[in-house]
């Protein structure tokens, strides 16, 4: 037994990556993570926003109230929100392979991440739109605005700071998902953390990836907060 333990310690010690080699390992991984999260967020914002606008305006009191379509759309969004990401990722492998032709790598990770991110973002934005006073939409209608003009100026325009807050939350969630996607060989920081830190007990890499993830999330949060301040008149003036 004693021999076994010392062998294990030996292996672990041997596996630790020397510090100078860390950048070569982490920089490409960081690039992959940024690419994944970047592509996903692009898809999430461009599809999640219209869904949120549709949900908000088909709900009772909206610009084009339609109870039936609202219920169906809302139900679909709820399904997307119900599955834990790991389960969703596994469940849609055939779909992912159909779309991307593969079930490993960045392309394969983007599909489940987008599918999880779109309903998440749609609900966040729907909430932001609901917080805009109804009278603002009424005033825009009375000012002769078309539905598209009203949505752009009085709904999305008014909700911009709140939406940016939601975007921050959503981006951080996607960084987290990208790490989970690392387990199916998506690459990125998550993949490095799993293969080196978890499977090979490489404490140096483990610690480095943890610090890198903390740094990324912090930068996103601080950047998001700054954007919220910059787009909110009363916060901007006081600063």
């Amino acid at each position: 037994m004693g021999l076994n333990i010392s062998a294990a310690v030996q292996i672990r010690a041997l596996a630790d990556t020397p510090l100078p080699e860390l950048p070569a390992l982490l920089v490409p991984a960081l690039g992959e993570t940024l690419a994944m999260v970047g592509i996903v967020m692009l898809v999430v914002v461009s599809l999640g926003t219209p869904i949120a606008v549709a949900l908000h305006n088909m709900a009772p009191g909206g610009l084009f109230e339609h109870r039936g379509t609202y219920s169906v759309l809302s139900w679909i969004v709820n399904i997307g929100r119900s599955l834990p990401f790991l389960v969703l990722m596994a469940a849609i492998v055939p779909f992912t392979r159909f779309v991307t032709g593969t079930n490993i790598g960045i392309a394969a990770a983007v599909v489940p991440m987008s599918l999880a991110g779109i309903p998440f973002f749609a609900r966040l934005v729907e909430n932001c739109l609901r917080d805009v006073p109804r009278s603002v939409t009424a005033a825009a209608r009375a000012s002769g605005g078309s539905p598209l003009q009203i949505i752009r100026t009085a709904q999305l325009g008014e909700a911009v700071p709140a939406i940016l807050g939601g975007l921050t939350i959503n981006t951080i969630a996607m960084i987290e998902y990208s790490a989970i996607a690392g387990t199916i060989g998506a690459g990125g920081i998550g993949y490095v953390a799993v293969t080196y830190g978890y499977q090979r007990f490489d404490q140096t890499v483990m610690l480095a990836t943890v610090l890198l993830l903390i740094a990324m999330v912090t930068i996103v949060q601080v950047g998001g907060d700054a954007l919220v301040r910059a787009t909110t008149p009363h916060l901007r003036r006081r600063a």
Partner: peptide, 18 residues
């Protein structure tokens, strides 16, 4: 278009805050 002939003043001025 026709609505433009009627100007409306609301209770809370309901201005765009930004």
């Amino acid at each position: 278009v026709a609505r433009r002939r009627i100007g409306t003043i609301f209770q809370s001025a309901s201005l765009l805050s930004r």
